[in-house]
């Protein structure tokens, strides 16, 4: 116990650095995947058959394979097969590779949620807009979008909470996020070795952060409760 108190400041500082990396990956993924997902949705719902076919194949591949393998492929594939490591070896390169893999993966999941959201808005809404002389884009933005958003918030919340925890997968390409930072004290780092508690303590960070997100997303959901 005394030992733990002695180690606490060092460990927390190191975990903070790792958690910052976790947060960076989380927000980068969200900012990239939310709009990219919409583009993929339009691709898969396109009436131009080859486009929707290819988009659906890509979504199938991305959703049908583990994110861990996608990370390995995104990071190592350019160097292994093309002979040209495009990401660079340092921390920044690893972060970019991880962010791209995460954005791509999550955009595919988001796109399916969006598609469900768009399709769940009754056809009558579009028809009512049409007979009132609205354009397709007016109908999308003024009539359907908010109804869509309302419907996709619960499944999106699920994915977003999952994303918080999925960021830990990035350590497979040696991105030093919080679990990596916690594990370092098991092997030995900064004069502390064989310390088991830092690894478990990372759970507290995840718990607090996903707690905050749950509250915020819950509020958003409530805000749209005024209509049905």
């Amino acid at each position: 116990m005394e030992l733990m108190l002695e180690q606490f400041p060092i460990v927390v500082q190191s975990l903070n650095v790792g958690f910052l990396q976790t947060l960076k990956l989380f927000f980068a993924t969200l900012i990239g995947a939310v709009p990219l997902g919409l583009i993929i949705t339009f691709g898969s719902m396109s009436r131009f058959k080859p486009l929707s076919f290819i988009t659906k194949i890509i979504v199938w591949i991305v959703r049908g394979t583990p994110l861990m393998i996608q990370l390995l492929i995104f990071y190592y594939f350019p160097g292994l097969v093309l002979g040209k490591p495009i990401w660079g070896s340092g921390e920044t390169g690893r972060f970019f590779a991880a962010a791209v893999a995460f954005i791509f993966n999550y955009a595919c999941y988001f796109s399916e949620i969006y598609r469900g959201g768009i399709q769940s808005v009754p056809v009558g809404q579009e028809e009512a807009g049409l007979v009132l002389g609205m354009t397709k884009s007016q109908i999308f933005f003024k009539v359907k979008l908010l109804q869509m958003v309302k419907r996709i918030i619960p499944p999106m919340s699920n994915e977003i909470i999952t994303l918080v925890k999925d960021t830990s997968l990035a350590r497979i390409i040696a991105l030093q996020e919080i679990i990596w930072a916690g594990q370092a004290f098991l092997k030995g780092s900064q004069g502390i070795s064989g310390a088991i508690w830092p690894l478990f303590f990372t759970g507290v960070y995840y718990l607090i952060f996903s707690g905050i997100l749950t509250v915020l997303l819950g509020r958003l959901e409530k805000k749209l409760d005024y209509f049905r």
């Binding site: 390995l72 594939f77 292994l80 490591p85 070896s89 340092g90 390169g93 040696a174």
Partner: peptide, 20 residues
Amino acid sequence: VEFVEIDWDNKVMELDGKTI
């Protein structure tokens, strides 16, 4: 010199992928 922390399991892949 640049030191890069890697996942020990992936050391051969890191070498062949020219990231180290």
